[in-house]
Simulated assay, not measured.
Amino acid sequence: DSWAAEGWNHADDPANLRKAFAGFGGRAAALINAVEACTLWGLHLHPVAQTWHQGGVALLGDAAHPTLPFLAQGANMALEDAWVLADSVLNHPAEQALARYQSLRQPRVTRVVKAAAGNAARYHLRPGPLRSAAHLGLKLGSTLAPWAMVGAFNWLYHHDVTAPK
Rank of each mutant, 00 (worst) to 15 (best):
1 D>V: 11
2 S>N: 15
4 A>V: 13
6 E>Y: 06
8 W>M: 07
9 N>P: 01
9 N>H: 14
11 A>E: 12
13 D>I: 10
14 P>V: 11
16 N>L: 11
16 N>S: 03
17 L>N: 12
18 R>D: 05
22 A>D: 13
22 A>H: 09
24 F>C: 14
25 G>S: 13
26 G>M: 08
27 R>Q: 14
30 A>R: 12
33 N>C: 10
33 N>P: 09
34 A>W: 02
36 E>V: 14
38 C>Q: 06
41 W>F: 08
43 L>T: 08
50 Q>W: 01
56 G>N: 08
57 V>F: 13
58 A>F: 06
60 L>D: 01
60 L>Y: 01
61 G>W: 00
63 A>D: 04
67 T>F: 00
68 L>N: 03
68 L>D: 02
70 F>C: 04
71 L>R: 03
73 Q>E: 06
74 G>A: 01
74 G>L: 05
80 E>Y: 04
80 E>I: 00
81 D>Y: 05
82 A>R: 03
82 A>M: 03
82 A>L: 05
85 L>H: 02
87 D>F: 00
87 D>M: 01
89 V>W: 01
89 V>E: 04
90 L>W: 09
91 N>H: 14
91 N>R: 06
93 P>N: 04
93 P>W: 00
94 A>H: 11
94 A>Y: 08
97 A>T: 06
97 A>I: 08
101 Y>S: 00
102 Q>I: 01
104 L>K: 13
104 L>H: 12
109 V>N: 11
111 R>D: 11
111 R>L: 10
114 K>L: 10
114 K>G: 06
115 A>I: 04
117 A>I: 04
118 G>K: 07
118 G>N: 13
119 N>G: 11
119 N>L: 03
120 A>E: 10
123 Y>T: 07
124 H>W: 10
125 L>K: 13
129 P>G: 03
130 L>I: 15
134 A>D: 07
137 G>W: 09
137 G>N: 09
139 K>N: 10
141 G>R: 02
143 T>P: 02
144 L>E: 07
145 A>H: 14
146 P>Q: 00
146 P>W: 03
148 A>E: 07
150 V>E: 13
151 G>M: 10
154 N>K: 15
155 W>K: 06
156 L>M: 10
156 L>W: 02
156 L>I: 08
159 H>V: 02
160 D>T: 12
160 D>N: 15
161 V>K: 04
161 V>I: 11
161 V>S: 05
163 A>H: 12
164 P>M: 05
